[in-house]
């Protein structure tokens, strides 16, 4: 990161979310960024697996996505069950089968860019969190700087698959020959 002239503070390091985060981080409707089945709603779901191919039953995944027109949501109310504001933010804990599910809007992009969800991933056994992206299939990926810098097999780890019913599926692999590309900024 480029620094300017002012004093810089040392960053606080991350630590694992541990196995017992659910009672601290869960909130009602946290994986429903929009109401399931509402106009424009899409399901985004998948399975998170470890290096042995086993599902990770104690992971936490967060998404932050633009609205359908590419606008970046800055509304409050993610934790307010009475709010129907579109905040773009969702949180899901994996179940015993390592599966997560969101209901949200499919992000659009401004200009000619590809559209993606920003993603953070936490789990027991991850000493600190991971960043990645989930790209929306069918958006112009060839214009995207990250996509252009990756091999075909790496790109595949970041692009969701569209089901016959129009919903999105995206699996995450922490290790292995399909290891998801994780990001550093």
């Amino acid at each position: 990161m480029t620094s300017t002239n002012e004093t810089r503070l040392a960053a606080t390091p991350g630590q694992t979310v541990g196995p017992f985060f659910h009672f601290g981080l869960n909130y009602v409707g946290m994986n429903h960024v929009v109401a399931p089945g509402s106009a424009g709603a899409v399901r985004l779901s998948g399975i998170i697996r470890d290096g042995a191919g086993e599902p990770v039953p104690d992971a936490l995944i967060e998404i932050f996505g633009a609205d359908a027109d590419g606008a970046i949501p800055q509304e409050q109310g993610s934790l307010d069950p009475g709010s129907d504001a579109f905040t773009g933010f969702g949180r899901a804990a994996t179940d015993d089968a390592g599966a997560y599910e969101f209901w949200t809007r499919e992000p659009g992009s401004r200009a000619r860019g590809a559209a993606f969800f920003a993603v953070t991933l936490f789990a027991r056994g991850l000493p600190s969190h991971l960043h990645t992206r989930i790209y929306v299939p069918g958006t112009p990926l060839t214009n995207d700087a990250l996509m252009a810098s990756l091999s075909e097999s790496q790109r595949e780890t970041l692009v969701a698959i569209r089901d016959a019913d129009g919903n999105l599926q995206h699996h995450i692999h922490l290790q292995g020959n399909r290891e998801t590309v994780f990001l550093d900024y």
């Binding site: 470890d50 290096g51 991850l126 290790q175 994780f182 550093d184």
Partner: peptide, 9 residues
């Protein structure tokens, strides 16, 4: 079995 084996991009 849970840490990524490749450097982050």
């Amino acid at each position: 079995l849970r840490h990524p084996t490749k450097n982050p991009k």
